[in-house]
Amino acid sequence: MSVVSLLGVNVLNNPAKFGDKYQFEITFECLEKLQKDLEWKLTYVGSATSDEHDQELDSLLVGPVPVGTNKFIFDADPPNTSRIPDAEILGVTVILLTCSYDGREFVRVGYYVNNEYDSDELNADPPAKPILEKVKRNVLSEKPRVTRFAIKWDSEESAPPEFPPEQPEADLVADGDQYGAEELAEEEEELAEEEAAAVDPDAMVDDAEIVGAEDPAAEESDAGSEDLEAESSGSEDELEEEDDVEGEGEGEAHGDDAMDMDGADKPALTPQTDAIMAH
């Protein structure tokens, strides 16, 4: 809660000539006694493209400030035209009325200002060098832009928190545009599918068939071996000769496998694979 609240600002001399002083009637409310003065400033924005031409027109210390509603007149000098580019004198610009306490700004009021000639002929065909005596200003006082800032006043209790307060209830409400919302929806969908499959009898049957698919193959392989042994006959010498022949065949097969690995079946090396192997 702010100790000082701005209640209203009236621009007194408006419209006026470009070289006239600015005059503001400022009304504010003070809720408790302040140890220091309030500092009011008026800044003229000299260029829309650079802040190098901004000018502090005037500043005023107000204090000691009594508790309650206060009103005063703030006069400020016009801008120094030598610090404003000629191309920026005419047209729309901005003035900023600010107030600070102990070097901390707590309120800012911005006004648009329209600078133009006081005759239609000059506005229709403005000279290259502005004629300042014929330029008038009009502060658009009906549409101010007020910005307030939370600051520390005299007590430590008045200091704003460094971090925003925790809002656990806000975390419970998912925002559709928040980051990660799509990923969360996909995970929930996958979880729902897994839960449905866990309770679906058909799905359980399919899983059982898939799990047991390897067992029949293994049984068939074992059965085939038994049949071959059962059907085999002859003397032990014949069996030994057959074993010798099979052993030679197996040796040749292994040799062919080795040749294939050294030959056409070997994957071709590329610079990328060479680099990986080097590491």
Rank of each mutant, 00 (worst) to 15 (best):
S2R: 06
S5W: 00
G8Q: 05
G8V: 01
V9F: 06
V11M: 00
V11F: 00
N13P: 01
N13D: 10
N14T: 02
P15Q: 05
G19W: 00
G19E: 02
G19L: 05
D20M: 02
D20L: 02
C30L: 02
L31E: 14
L34K: 04
K36Q: 12
D37C: 05
D37F: 05
L38I: 06
E39C: 08
T43F: 02
Y44L: 03
Y44I: 01
T49I: 08
D51F: 08
E52M: 13
D54W: 04
G63Q: 09
P64E: 12
P64I: 09
V65A: 09
P66H: 11
F72E: 04
F72G: 03
I73P: 03
F74P: 00
P78C: 06
P78R: 02
P79Y: 05
T81Q: 09
I84L: 06
E88I: 01
L90D: 03
T93E: 00
S100I: 02
D102E: 11
Y111E: 03
Y112T: 07
Y112K: 13
V113I: 13
N115V: 03
N115G: 01
N115K: 04
E116D: 10
D118Y: 03
E121Q: 12
L122F: 04
N123W: 05
D125C: 10
D125V: 14
P126L: 06
P127V: 06
A128K: 14
P130E: 02
P130W: 02
E133Y: 05
K136N: 09
N138H: 11
V139F: 02
K143E: 10
V146W: 04
R148G: 01
A150C: 09
K152A: 09
S155L: 14
E156D: 15
E157R: 10
A159M: 04
Q167Y: 05
P168V: 10
E169C: 04
L172S: 11
V173K: 10
A174R: 13
Y179S: 11
Y179K: 15
A181Q: 10
A181M: 10
E182H: 13
A185N: 10
E186F: 14
E190S: 14
L191V: 03
A192M: 12
D200F: 03
P201W: 05
D202Y: 14
E209W: 11
E209F: 12
I210P: 00
I210A: 13
G212N: 14
G212K: 05
A213C: 12
D215R: 11
P216L: 06
P216K: 02
E219S: 09
S221K: 12
S221Y: 08
D222K: 13
G224T: 08
E226P: 00
D227R: 07
E229P: 00
E231V: 06
L239W: 14
L239D: 08
E241N: 07
E242F: 07
E242T: 06
E242P: 00
D243F: 13
D244A: 15
E248M: 14
G249K: 15
H254I: 15
G255W: 13
M259H: 10
K266M: 08
K266W: 09
A268D: 08
L269F: 02
P271I: 03
P271W: 03
T273I: 08
I276H: 12
